[in-house]
Structure formats: structure tokens, C-alpha cells
Nucleic acid binder design. Structure first.
Length: 936
DNA sequence: ACTCTGCGGAGAGGA
């Protein structure tokens, strides 16, 4: 309990309205609901809650503010603040459930002895992924430990009851008749759990259209009279209330269907409640299975028909979700209530002939009353575009092939390798990561597209071993494929033949939809973003730097500013003065990365916390590589696989390993000690973001990110800076209709119409004046300028230029190829030409091969060029697609074009190609150039 | 058709 202080008084306005209901009404309500209730303060305190308000505190966490009173007259109001009320979707019980599952699973293949159980429990709660969840939920490690330990005696009891006994009648009696038994009179039997066959068995069943993971697969003996039946069946663990409910039992029935992919029908499963050690048998009757599959099919049908085409106007629109159920109670506790109401209001209620149960209307209205019409429209438009786009991606997939096509046939497409045998031992990297080596049955591994880092699905060649596990390729050479898999396959016979299939790209619709949903929430942060982004509220700026710059940071900041050019300095100032957002237009070669790095240094010097994000890992790391030189500590989050080697030591994984972090306190210390946190804009599901709020969020490559993705990191900061260049390619959108509806408009572009939020970086250091003039005239309205005379006049340095020139003149090469002369003439920076032999000549003229870059539009073409180079004398020339070059510099860049089809046309994609200067994705500029070129 | 980047996941409980 706290008295109303200044800050809270500020909030009083908002809850004042709710509390302003006539006092008598409250009095009546009070009397009606609690006729003889005594309100009192002190030890036996009993208060009446007059109003509840959810607010966001300074740390960005949710607090519930209750206006309460202990006086019958309701006069003396007090404020009660409920803190650490963590978000519902991830709860304490879920975490405890996960931990207990793991402990039990370890115990069943180890031992249920009390001391062993305690050891396993202790180990498990020290694992970093569980510590991270505890951090997310703001829990106390000791409390969790205690709560886990409270379950252990029941574990022991269960093992004592069901495992290892002398005679079959010592096992507990149960009522279970299997569908195949056919005798209903004797359902009594004794159940013995013989062994654990598998843990977390992962099964995909195309036949039933289901997939799932089975907690424990157990070998069970069913003793009935003198007969004994052996069955391998699913055992489902539950840590919550011992409900033996229809939901729990249905889950087990579904597992009996999954099991049929691997072995004969178990006909039944087991349901074990770990709180008590009580176990229930669940027979899988045909009719139950049939009903469950019917439900599955209904669900699948509506997921498949998320979009409909209206017959009259030929317009695509979102379809209705299955009818809302008319049960307020069920909805009350549903985690999807908000989304459900939002979709109903924004989409379904806008359609002709839509019907919403009348009882649910007030609830839907209440959930969405904070949203304006513009917000609902933004939501439904983006929901439609995202759905269209994800369906386009879905159509490109042909995942059926992986179970319908034999590996030998699939290999032709290059996305599969079959006939593999597991070699030697499996190395356990950590829980859930196992290193496997595979070799081909006949020696060499066939030609394949599979590369290190690719996600894969591992199956046995036999159909019954389909989709055993997943993981990714760690290394691949002529003879061996090394993979990191989520399950240990050494339980299977050595002779098992495996196949690896490239996993279809997971077209992520969840992250953007989640962000979109969050944007519609009734919170302070979301409201602000809605104002700025949807309603185009003008961004505000403060007037004087003195109010943001701490006195003791002034010198440092001034010193850093000295190294910048004019537009860069303006950018720094603008950001510091911003209360909402700033957009930095980074034209090609203007030192975007340096500018961002400097910005971070300044913010750091001022003591601001910064969230640094970008679209790609490489762009994030490019900034961090520069930042590391200035001794600024940072924390790099995200997939370690993709993190730059020099940045690895700053990743959470590495730090946790080197500091051997095994307690929540140490983890909290790590998270709290870092002012700068860096990750991709997709990597925002990290626990740190549910507890921290940053002063600034910087998003690099912002003109390439679609709005709902770019939104993600913005929720975790007070203001944001988008860095990009809308003249470069917009976000990639495959679906034509989605593009036509505006899906390729980035947040950067949308907000750019607020001119006062924009600063342009115009001084460039990459191109000499001739190269620059191309993009300057065609795209940048002459705004670009060279950073110095040195930049303006820079030409390629070829120390052996004269020798090569002589050589060319001497041999027939030159007379046969007169154009070659022009190519390596340093004063000739831009040429269109045939590119045979060029690299060799540049190389022999003294150009370092690593200063040469080759770009080609097609992957296969890159492969061929790479192979040719590998067999030639010139090494270390980098060959890549445009996108991979990511705004880096090379002294010489060769672009290889190709056209190899019968009608000799250049396709749409190739029409968008660019040459000279190589910031990422400047295809559009090329379009201008080529157009211009052809006209001339 | 081709080009592209990000993502652990199915299930942990609740009523």
C-alpha cells in the first residue's frame, strides 16, 4: 500500500472518470453483493475496489492500480498498486510444468531415487533457458526450486507403484479394455510400466493431418488374469490439477493416432498427474477418434479458407473465423480474447450478413473501445496483406514431396540427400542439441544445394521413420554431412538409412501478426505508436540540447561530433532532441554505419540505453564491429549461428558460458549491466524485452523492412530512429495483390512524409565523381556530394598497369579484344562490356583479388563462376548475389549478366538490376540507368 | 521459374 504520490496523481485523471460514478450506486452495489461486509484497515484489512486501471510504469511493465476504500461511506480512497503482474501468455505454472516434465523424463531413463531426483531437479532449474524464463516472468529462483521439489515425492510414489515388482498382481488395478479385446465383461487389469522407449518422440502424421510430441513413450504390460499383453503406448504427463478431463484424455487419444506412424496401434494411452502420482488409462475408441478428427478437419478448413473472393466485385477479403462461442465464462479466461474481439470488430463486423452472438457484443465492444476507425482499418488491411503474402509463400512450397517422393527422386531437385548412414558416436552439445555425422552408403555425397546453416528435417528412408527430428547442417563436404539435431538418433539401429530434406522456408506470419495485435492493445506504448504511425501525429522535438545532455557528457559528445560532417552532425542533434522519432536518410556511401555507430557512442556517453536492430544479422554486426573498437560494451542477442565470428564473444550464449551463469541473480546482473542491446528486428521474443524499456531504438535498413516487422522493436523503447533510403528497393513482397494494396510500403517510407523528422546524409565517401554522377542525376536529385577531393578523384591503383598494357599490346589478346584496354584504364570507372578475362588482367595488373567483387543474379550462375574461379589462378575473389553485398565497398565490381532461354527475353527480375555502386539492393536505380542507356 | 531475409517449437497450465 502506498499513499498517493505525485506521479500517481498524474494518473488520477484517467481513473477519475471510472471512479466518478455516483457514490450511491456503488453503495447499492456494495450492499447488494456483500450485505453484511465489514470494511477495515490494519491486520484484518478488507477493502472495496472502486476502480481498476492498468498502466505502464517507467520500466514499461504493466501495473494494476486499484482505487480502494475501507470506509463504508466510500469517502477515503486509497491507491493500491499491483506490481509484477506478469503477462498471462507465459505463466509461472507453465514454467514449472516444463521443468517438471524434464525432470520426470530424465528420471525415467535414470532413477527415481529421492536423492537422484533432487539432483536432477537442481540441475534442471539451473539451465539457462529456464533461468531466462524466470527472468521473463520476474520470478524468484528459490521459490521455483521449492515448488519443483514439492512434486518429487509423488514421482517416487508413481515409480514405486508402476515399475519393477515381483509379481504382476503387485501392480495397481485399473479398468481398461482395449477396443480389440472384444470382451466387455472383464475390464479389470494390472498395469506395469516396463520401460521408457522414447522421450519427446516427435511425430508428423500426414495421414491424419496432425503433428505432436509425446512426453514419454512407454512399454507397458497389461496383466489380465493369467494373460499378459505388451503394448508400446503414449504416456502424457500433467502437472496441474488432477482433472482427468475430456481435454486431457482427448490429447492422449490424438497421441494414439500419431503413434501409428511409428508402430502398431497402441489402442490406449496413459495420463499421469504428477502432483499426486495418480495415473489413468485412456482407451482410444474408434468413435472418439472420429469425432476428434472431425474437429481437426473443421479447424483445418477454416485455416485454409482465411481469404475469400467476393463474387460480385472480384475483391479479395478476409473470411470469418469460426463462429464465436456463446460462453462468457470460457472467453473470460481465454488468452486470445483480445485478438478474437479485435478480429470480430475490425473484420467480421464490417461484412454483410455477419453474425455475432448478441451476448458477446458488449464484451467485444469493451475490448476494442479504445480503437478508432482508422486503427481498425489499418489492422484489417495489414491482416489481409499478410495473409495473402503468406499464402503466396505457402503455394511455393511442395512439402508433400518429402513424404510422397522417394529420396532418390528428390535428390534431383538438390534439396534432399538420401541413403545416409550415421557414423560413430553422437556428441551431445547441450540439452536438445546433438551433433550427428552422416556418410553416404555408396561413398560420395551426390550433388546438392544443401549448405551449412540450412534447416533440415531428418527422416528414415522407411516411411515409418518419417520426420524423426529437425535441425540444421553444420558442415558438408564431399563425403560427410555434419548436422546439429534436436534429438539423439543413436537409439535407432546402426543400419538405419536416413535422408535429409531441406526444411521449407517457414514463412513467418506469426511475428508480424503478433506485432500488429500488440499495436492494437490498450497500453500507453501502443497508443503512442498508433498515434504516430496510423494517425500520422506530428513527431515532437524539444528545443534545447542542454536539457538532454548531461553536464559531464558535454565534452565527450563535443569531441565525438568533431569527427563528423555537417549532415551527420545535424542527424545527431535531431535524434537527441526527438521525443518521438527521427528518420535518417542514408544515401549510398554516406557512411550510414559510421553514423549509427557514432550515434550509439553519443547516446552511450549521455547514459541512454539503446536497442540496436536491423533486418539482417550482417547489418547488425557491421555496426557492432565498429562499436567494439570504442570499448562500448554491448549484448548481442539472436541466433549464434548467424553472428559474425568477431562478435561471438558478445553473444548471450558465449557470455553465459564463459561466466558460467547458473543462477537467476547472475543472469539479471548481465541483463541489467548492458546499456546497448543488439539483435535483428525479428529477434524480439527474448525475455529481456519483457522487463526492459530502452531510451532509444535504432533500426538500420529500415526502408527494407515491412511495417509490421519494423514495429516489433519499437514497443520496447521511448523513441526511435529509423535509418534507411527509400530510393533503394522496398520490402520484398511476392504476392501481386498484397503489393497492389500497399504492402511494400515500409514504415520508413510511411513516416517520411513528416518532413521535419527527416535528416539526409548527403556527403558520400564511396564513389568518385564520375560514378557518383550516375546515381546523383538519376535518383538523388543532385543532392549527393563527394566527401573530399580525394574521394572525388579516386581511381583504381594498378601498380603493374604499364607491364600489362605492354603485354596486351604484344600478344594477340589486345588486338583481338581492343575493348580490354578501356576496361582497366583507371580513368574509366564505369563500363558496359563483356566480362571474359577481366579478372585475370586486373589481377596481373596488381589489383588484390580481395578488392574485386563479382555479382550475378542467379545462384546457379554464382556457383558456376565460383567453380571456374576455384580452378583458375586467381583466388579470393568474392562472388555473391547483390543482396549479400550489403552496402560494402570494393575497388572493382563485375556484374555478370546472363540470358539463356529460347525466346531470348530478359525477365522482369533482371530488368531491375544495378551495377556500379553497391549499396544493398539498388536495383531500381539500375532500371533507370538501363532505360537511359537503351535510349541513347 | 529465377532473386530475398528473418524465425526453435508443440505444449508448459488455467477455469
Amino acid at each position: 500500500m502506498e499513499p498517493l504520490d505525485e506521479l500517481e496523481l498524474l494518473m488520477e485523471k484517467s481513473f477519475g472518470e471510472e471512479a466518478a460514478l455516483p457514490e450511491e450506486l456503488f453503495q447499492k452495489k456494495l450492499v447488494a453483493s456483500f450485505p453484511r461486509i465489514v470494511l477495515s484497515r490494519g491486520t484484518d484489512n478488507r477493502y472495496l475496489v472502486l476502480a481498476i486501471n492498468t498502466v505502464q510504469n517507467k520500466e514499461g511493465n504493466c501495473e494494476k492500480h486499484l482505487v480502494i476504500t475501507a470506509s463504508q461511506s466510500l469517502e477515503n480512497k486509497e491507491l493500491c498498486i499491483l506490481r509484477n503482474d506478469c503477462s498471462e501468455p507465459a505463466t509461472r505454472q507453465m514454467l514449472i510444468g516444463t521443468v517438471l516434465h524434464e525432470v520426470f523424463q530424465k528420471a525415467i531413463s535414470n532413477s527415481f531415487a529421492p536423492e537422484k531426483l533432487r539432483e536432477l531437479a537442481f540441475q534442471t532449474i539451473q539451465e539457462i533457458r529456464h533461468l531466462k524464463e524466470m527472468y521473463r516472468l520476474n520470478l524468484n529462483q528459490d521459490e521455483i526450486k521449492q515448488e519443483v521439489e514439492d512434486y518429487l515425492p509423488a514421482f517416487c510414489k508413481w515409480a514405486g507403484d508402476y515399475m519393477h515388482k515381483n509379481s504382476s498382481t503387485d501392480f495397481p488395478q485399473m479398468q481398461l479394455s482395449l477396443p480389440s479385446d472384444n470382451n466387455k465383461d472383464n475390464s479389470t487389469c494390472n498395469i506395469e510400466v516396463v520401460k521408457s522407449v522414447d522421450i519427446e518422440e516427435s511425430i508428423w502424421s500426414p495421414r491424419f493431418g496432425l503433428k505432436g510430441k509425446i512426453d514419454v513413450t512407454v512399454g507397458v504390460k497389461i496383466h489380465r488374469g493369467c494373460k499378459t499383453k505388451y503394448k508400446i503406448m503414449p504416456l502424457e504427463l500433467k502437472t496441474g490439477k488432477e482433472s482427468n478431463s475430456i481435454e486431457h484424455r482427448s490429447q492422449v487419444v490424438l497421441y494414439t493416432l500419431l503413434s501409428q506412424e511409428r508402430r502398431t496401434d497402441p489402442e490406449a494411452g496413459l495420463l499421469l498427474y504428477l502432483k499426486t502420482g495418480q495415473m489413468y488409462p485412456v482407451p482410444a475408441n474408434h468413435l472418439d477418434r472420429r469425432e476428434l478428427l472431425k474437429l481437426r478437419n473443421q479447424m483445418a478448413f477454416s485455416l485454409f479458407h482465411r481469404i475469400s473472393k467476393s463474387a460480385t466485385r472480384q475483391k479479395t477479403q478476409l473470411a470469418s473465423l469460426p463462429q464465436i462461442i456463446e460462453e462468457e465464462k470460457t472467453c473470460k479466461y481465454c488468452s486470445q480474447m483480445g485478438n478474437c474481439a479485435l478480429y470480430s470488430r475490425a473484420v467480421e463486423q464490417q461484412m454483410d450478413g455477419s453474425s455475432v452472438p448478441i451476448v458477446m457484443l458488449p464484451k467485444i465492444e469493451e475490448e476494442t473501445q479504445h480503437l478508432k476507425h482508422t486503427h481498425l482499418e489499418y489492422f484489417s488491411l495489414w491482416y489481409l496483406m499478410l495473409t495473402l503474402e503468406s499464402q503466396s509463400k505457402d503455394n511455393k512450397k511442395n512439402h508433400q514431396n518429402i513424404w510422397l517422393m522417394p529420396a532418390l527422386e528428390m535428390e534431383k531437385s538438390g534439396s534432399c540427400i538420401g541413403n545416409l548412414i550415421r557414423m560413430e558416436h553422437v556428441k551431445t552439445v547441450c540439452d536438445g542439441q546433438y551433433l550427428h555425422n552422416f556418410q553416404h552408403k555408396n561413398g560420395a555425397i551426390p550433388v546438392t544445394n544443401l549448405m551449412a546453416g540450412d534447416r533440415i528435417i531428418v527422416s528414415g528412408e522407411e516411411r515409418s521413420l518419417f520426420a524423426l527430428c529437425r535441425g540444421y547442417v553444420k558442415e558438408i563436404n564431399m563425403t560427410t554431412v555434419t548436422c546439429l539435431l534436436d534429438r539423439n538418433l543413436s537409439v535407432l539401429p546402426e543400419s538405419t538409412l536416413f535422408r535429409l530434406d531441406q526444411e521449407e522456408k517457414n514463412c513467418d506470419i506469426d511475428t508480424p501478426l503478433g506485432n500488429l495485435s500488440k499495436l492494437m492493445e490498450n497500453t500507453f506504448v501502443s497508443k503512442k505508436l498508433r498515434d504516430l504511425i496510423i494517425d500520422f501525429r506530428e513527431p515532437h522535438f524539444i528545443s534545447y540540447l542542454s536539457s538532454v545532455l548531461p553536464r559531464d557528457a558535454k565534452d565527450t559528445v563535443a569531441c565525438i561530433l568533431k569527427g563528423l560532417n555537417k549532415p551527420q552532425r545535424q542527424a545527431m542533434k535531431k535524434v537527441l532532441l526527438s521525443k518521438d522519432y527521427t528518420l535518417i536518410v542514408g544515401m549510398p556511401g554516406t557512411g550510414k554505419t559510421t553514423t549509427i555507430c557514432t550515434l550509439v557512442r553519443i547516446l552511450y556517453a549521455c547514459g541512454f540505453s539503446v536497442l540496436l536492430t536491423s533486418y539482417t544479422h550482417s547489418a547488425v554486426d557491421n555496426i557492432l564491429l565498429k562499436l567494439a573498437k570504442f570499448k562500448i560494451g554491448f549484448l548481442r542477442l539472436g541466433q549464434t549461428q548467424k553472428v559474425h565470428p568477431a562478435i561471438q564473444k558478445f553473444t548471450e550464449q558465449e557470455i553465459c558460458k564463459s561466466k558460467s551463469i547458473k543462477s537467476l541473480a547472475l543472469l539479471e546482473e548481465l541483463y541489467n549491466s548492458q546499456l546497448i542491446v543488439a539483435t535483428t528486428c525479428m529477434g524480439i521474443n527474448h525475455p529481456i524485452f519483457s522487463r526492459k524499456i530502452f531510451d532509444f531504438c535504432i533500426v538500420d535498413e529500415a526502408s527494407q523492412i515491412s511495417q509490421p516487422i519494423c514495429l516489433g522493436p519499437l514497443f520496447f523503447s521511448r523513441r526511435f530512429v529509423l535509418v534507411g533510403d527509400h530510393q533503394q528497393l522496398p520490402p520484398l513482397v511476392l504476392n501481386h495483390e498484397a503489393r497492389a494494396l500497399g504492402m511494400s510500403e515500409s514504415l520508413f517510407k510511411r513516416l517520411e512524409q513528416n518532413k521535419n523528422a527527416v535528416v539526409q546524409l548527403t556527403v558520400q565517401y564511396r564513389m568518385n565523381s564520375k560514378i557518383m554522377s550516375l546515381s546523383n542525376k538519376l535518383t538523388y536529385e543532385g543532392k549527393l556530394e563527394c566527401g573530399s577531393d580525394k574521394v572525388a578523384n579516386a581511381v583504381i591503383n594498378l601498380p603493374h598497369f604499364k607491364d600489362v598494357k605492354l603485354e596486351l599490346e604484344f600478344y594477340a589478346d589486345y588486338s583481338g579484344n581492343p575493348w580490354l584496354m578501356g576496361v582497366f584504364e583507371p580513368s574509366n570507372p564505369v563500363c558496359f562490356l563483356n566480362t571474359d578475362k577481366v579478372i585475370k588482367i586486373f589481377s596481373s595488373a596488381g589489383c588484390n583479388p580481395s578488392d574485386i567483387g563479382i555479382i550475378a543474379p542467379y545462384r546457379q550462375q554464382l556457383k558456376i563462376i565460383n567453380d571456374l574461379l576455384a580452378h583458375s589462378s586467381v583466388g579470393m575473389v568474392e562472388v555473391n548475389t547483390v543482396d549479400k553485398y550489403q552496402g560494402r565497398d570494393k575497388s572493382i565490381v563485375l556484374v555478370s549478366f546472363v540470358r539463356s532461354n529460347k525466346d531470348g527475353t530478359v525477365n522482369f527480375f533482371l530488368n531491375l538490376f544495378y551495377i556500379i555502386d553497391l549499396p544493398s539492393r539498388e536495383h531500381e536505380s539500375l532500371c533507370h540507368i538501363l532505360g537511359d542507356f537503351q535510349r541513347k
